[in-house]
Amino acid sequence: MTVLADLTFSAVALSAVYFLAASGLSLIYGLMDVLNFAHGLFMTLGAYAAWDLTTHLTSTLSAPLNFAVGVVAAILAGAVVAGLTELWLIRPLYGRPISQILVTIGLDLAAVGLLLGGFGSNSLSMPVPLWLFEATHWGSLNLPNADFVALIAGVVVLVGLEWFLRRTRYGIIIRAGVENRDMVRALGVDVGRAFTLVFVLGGAMAGLAGLLNSVVFSGDLVSPLQGDGLLIFAFIVVVIGGLGSIRGSAVAALLVGVVQDFSNYYLGTHPGMAEIGNLSVVLLLAVVLEWRPRGLFGGTL
């Protein structure tokens, strides 16, 4: 029983990171039809920005404060790079969806290459408060603090995003644009600004996801390829949830996290099945698409 509870908790924490990565992708796709391969880069850059600041500039601060600086740096780095990507690379290619996908692929290749050249392919260790690696004991349960952080971040972002999409004018523009971009334009709304905004938002969430991925699941390590690894699962979450749906992303992230963690735990120890968790996720995708080709929540926000 405790094993089951511990396992569920860590699966949900993993889901939270998947959700952070996937919700931005899903919004970007839903509104702009852009399959953003550079999302993995935004995650990696978030983690590296946090690493750079916390190991160099602010390393003399107290550990919790230093970590908070890292979180802000990750979010800002993701947001800024994503915004510039939209303005400089995506905007000149409006109306050419395939070229937009290709340009994000090229950006990801080039920037990850630069990171590999600059920092090397080895992982770098980031200073984080030791508290994160301790666990909170609840009766017989052992709940890692890092998982709590991921979970809280995921819930805060989900609630904040829902509020933004339902209560603000830009939120309404984005939801309407996901349904019918042209009609929003014909009402006199400049959708281009909403495009930049979803990239900035998506980038911010991706930066946070990259940092949390390092802290929670990689033992405080950052590496140039971490974001691209996470990106594949974020893609799968987005497709299972339904392209363009935030709630779909949330539900699908839970599904993928649980399936992956449980199959890893119960089957992954058998010889030749180290990758069973990843394989089951792909299988899950195939099953969902056969059953509902548009994903679980296809087409609604």
């Binding site: 000149p92 340009v103 090229g106 290749l109 080039a110 290459g113 630069l114 590999l116 050249g117």
Partner: peptide
């Protein structure tokens, strides 16, 4: 740093071609 990484140069070339 950039010249040591074919991935960077090819990626950048690719972006320029797409644009």
């Amino acid at each position: 740093v950039p010249l040591s990484q074919p991935q960077f140069l090819l990626g950048a070339l690719f972006v320029l071609f797409v644009l």
